[in-house]
Design a protein around this nucleic acid. Structure first.
Length: 113
DNA sequence: GGATTGACGTGTC
DNA sequence: AGACACGCCAATC
């Protein structure tokens, strides 16, 4: 059995939420943290996301970016272009490691879920 | 067990 | 608009 790391329930919710992100949409760490009831735990979300690379099933972490729409964790995918390629593949434009029209493709779990 | 760090966020200069 | 500083919470050293 896999032992849960971090704040078990918190990470669990993060993973579940990220998996619910529709294709062609993105969200921010802060939005997820708020959806979990911890508006200031944005860093914990990112911390948990860092572990999803080895978690299963695979989590579309490429759809999660920071509030500025920057692909902060692109390096966690193994390649700097991997995350951008995935996003563009889903119809999300990325320029200079930043999401184009971030506000347009932004998916708010609090409002849309 | 204190100090540092981190896929963050918001405010200020 | 870009750069810098402070705050938050948990994990790692």
């Amino acid at each position: 059995m896999e032992k849960l790391r971090q704040t078990d329930a918190f990470a669990e919710n993060v993973y579940a939420l990220v998996r619910e992100i529709p294709r062609g949409r993105v969200t921010s760490y802060g939005a997820i943290a708020r959806a979990l009831g911890q508006p200031n735990a944005s860093r914990l979300v990112g911390y948990a996301m860092r572990h999803v690379s080895v978690a299963s099933p695979a989590i579309p972490a490429h759809r999660v970016v920071n509030s500025t729409g920057v692909l902060s964790g692109k390096w966690a995918f193994g390649s700097a272009n991997a995350m951008q390629e995935l996003l563009e593949k889903e119809g999300i434009a990325v320029a200079n490691d930043k999401i184009v029209g971030f506000k347009q493709v932004f998916w708010d779990p609090l409002s849309e879920l």
